[in-house]
Design a protein around this nucleic acid. Structure first.
Length: 308
DNA sequence: CTCCAGGCGCCTT
DNA sequence: AAGGCGCATGGA
């Protein structure tokens, strides 16, 4: 059991703590498109979890955390970072095929975070047909305008909590559109109103089987299969939830169905549920990150060639 | 200029 | 059931 070896060391009731980890790519994970509010400043990343500001930095001893105020209990951070997950055990469940070997080799230390369901749900409603940098901008505007200020050092990155469903439900559609979210504004507004009026209870979803949990999330406007699976995976930790977006669809097509003309999206979705095992969600994140970094480096190469 | 972005809802067949 | 299209906004 990982219990004692992974207890935070140093002064636990102070503003800082260290969490020993292995195979944990902190920066890569924070910027991998699961969460949208982490800002790199110098050699650290700064973010807000719940109403806690925190600065994280990788050191030889592990993940070094600095909060804005003294902490008695770092459980909120251990939960967010999923410190206790043994990633080797997870990787061992992946199918032993060429695509997965490549993805694992190129994304060493990639992890899944565990976010709060409401923030995760709202963020991914805002994500549809947006690039990650734009999602970050929308979320930043939303938090700065409607989120409560948190205790944070001056000259820091994010300084606001994610706005509550109650606060969003009290917004006008116009106020939300002013955060550049366009046609997603009514989706977010209605979803917040459904939560406030308890039409769907986000806490109840925790204890449901995967398919029933998914059905609940699909009741929200602006939430289809892909966004529901993102929330199930990143917000609730259902390990088999497997979000299929354009990147993953392309990856599965190219890597598992090469030179096949008629592969329907339905067929690919069935394959994804069957093929990737009990931690399919982790496998999905490795594939996603693998495809995306490959794409980014291809673009860099293209730019370099055209500059010559 | 056009095309597309961690999709979804709604309208056609 | 399956396929097509519009939707805001911004970057390549």
């Amino acid at each position: 059991m990982p219990g004692f070896a992974l207890m935070p060391t140093g002064n636990q009731s102070g503003r800082t703590a260290v969490f020993p980890v292995s195979d944990y790519d902190l920066d890569g994970t924070l910027e991998s498109g699961q969460a949208f509010r982490w800002e790199v400043r110098g050699d650290a990343s700064e973010g807000v979890i719940g109403d806690q500001w925190v600065r994280l930095k990788m050191t030889t001893a592990g993940i070094h955390a600095e909060a804005a105020a003294p902490q008695h209990d770092w459980h909120w951070l251990e939960e967010f970072l999923q410190i206790k997950v043994n990633i080797a055990d997870v990787l061992q469940t992946f199918p032993d095929d060429e695509p997965m070997r490549c993805a694992v080799a190129s994304c060493r230390g990639l992890r899944l975070l565990r976010q709060q369901p409401w923030e995760c749900l709202a963020s991914f409603i805002l994500s549809s047909t947006k690039q990650i940098v734009q999602i970050r901008e929308i979320v930043r505007l939303l938090t700065e305008r409607f989120g409560r200020r948190v205790i944070a050092p001056s000259q820091s990155g994010p300084t606001h909590a994610f706005p509550s469903a109650e606060r969003i439900a009290a917004c006008s559609e116009t106020e939300l559109r002013a955060c550049k979210m366009g046609f997603r504004a009514p989706y977010l507004l209605k979803t917040a109103q459904m939560i406030v009026s308890d039409v769907v209870n986000l806490e109840d979803i925790r204890s449901l089987p995967l398919s029933e949990a998914r059905e609940r999330l699909l009741l929200f406007p602006g939430v289809g299969r892909k966004i529901a699976d993102c929330v199930l995976l990143f917000g609730y930790g259902f390990p088999k939830a497997f979000p299929v977006d354009v990147w993953i669809m392309r990856a599965l097509r190219e890597l598992y169905f090469p030179q096949k003309r008629k592969v329907t999206p339905q067929r690919i979705l069935e394959f994804s549920e069957r093929h990737f095992g009990p931690y399919g969600g982790y496998a999905q994140q490795y594939l996603f990150h693998y495809m995306r970094t490959k794409h980014i480096s291809n673009n860099r190469d293209k730019a370099a060639r055209s500059a010559q």
